[in-house]
Design a protein around this nucleic acid. Sequence first.
DNA 1: CACCGCCAGATACCATCGGTATCCGGCGGG
DNA 2: CCCGCCGGATACCGATGGTATCTGGCGGTG
Lengths: 197, 197
Amino acid sequence: MTQTKVTRAERQAQTRDRLIEVAKEMFLRDGYAATSLDKVALEAGFSKGAVYSNFRGKEELCLAVLDVIHAEKVQGVLDAFTQDADLDTKLKAFAAWAHQGLGEPRWTALEVEFGAVARHNDWVAAELVKRHREIREAIGQLVAHVAEESGLSTTVPVQTVATALLSLGVGLGALRSLDSHVDVDVFTDVMRVLVRD
Amino acid sequence: MTQTKVTRAERQAQTRDRLIEVAKEMFLRDGYAATSLDKVALEAGFSKGAVYSNFRGKEELCLAVLDVIHAEKVQGVLDAFTQDADLDTKLKAFAAWAHQGLGEPRWTALEVEFGAVARHNDWVAAELVKRHREIREAIGQLVAHVAEESGLSTTVPVQTVATALLSLGVGLGALRSLDSHVDVDVFTDVMRVLVRD
DNA sequence: CACCGCCAGATACCATCGGTATCCGGCGGG
DNA sequence: CCCGCCGGATACCGATGGTATCTGGCGGTG
């Protein structure tokens, strides 16, 4: 039985999580600019005041949302490559994941739209850059690990591969969010070329 | 001596061109959302009414701006590859152009930010997709031409190369507009890998 | 156990923006 | 020469992000 014995801090944490959850859905579906704080708060069952009492503003809310999304993405990549199988199986698993990842949800679209916002606020820009560097670092380590494990070498430095894959993913996703005819397999095709030797 | 003998249509065309010119500068410098039509009109020496009498709205103004930018970009690429020299010289010329193209101006940032806007307006989305397809087509033909001329074959289909290069350029530019430490050379590195055999 | 300070969240309000409706003044055809 | 037409100006609206202020109930204290 869940006691109604919840401290104020716990209540606030619940409010915060619910706001992030609702905001994530709306940001991904409608984009950053088209999602108003009023609508997020209302959909979550609160008023705009709740948002401003949990986040410094719209940007900080979006950063919190991006943190959740990034964690999900990292987990997805790890799941694909962690299984005990040969490289081709792993690449296929990753390709399948990338397919549904670059397919419908508009993650990269949100990422780049928010990037435009960040350019007007040094603090937001710094926070976003920090996250991007972590992601590139993670990709680089993963690529290095996979390459070594499979006895392959990359055609260019690992850091270049990481930057290329992140850029390609972001760009491809952004293009695809407009034109679903853009071929998703381009991503894995390029990836194979970069790690082949 | 330039006669003041200008028809009304000519005057309006001048107004339109001036608005596009000013809007291009402000969109690239501050981004789409952060550029208000009031400021554009004022900076151009007109009022907001002039904007709405020349364009259906902010989106159409931005499409006109993108047309100008696209034309400049295409010309830049052609200039790099049209010169009569060996492949490596051409690639170096292109690399130099890409360096200053992906470096400071925030073209790709504008492109992806406007892409987010386009998702809420079918007509705008269609117009943008049309332009993207033309660009990919142009890149594809150029790559095919260069490869054939140099007796090389691409490691993946030409259309894939074109999509990869456009996506990579867009993504890399978007990332770089936030974090200038992201390596520009990634673009040409990947390009070399894709056309080498 | 009663009381009161404090804080999460609500409410009211403001500036700015894209967009629309309406108006004005000078060009150009009759 | 004159009047209709249209490019551009002006006034206004609804929505949005952000700020200031208020309030009611939780939780530490005597």
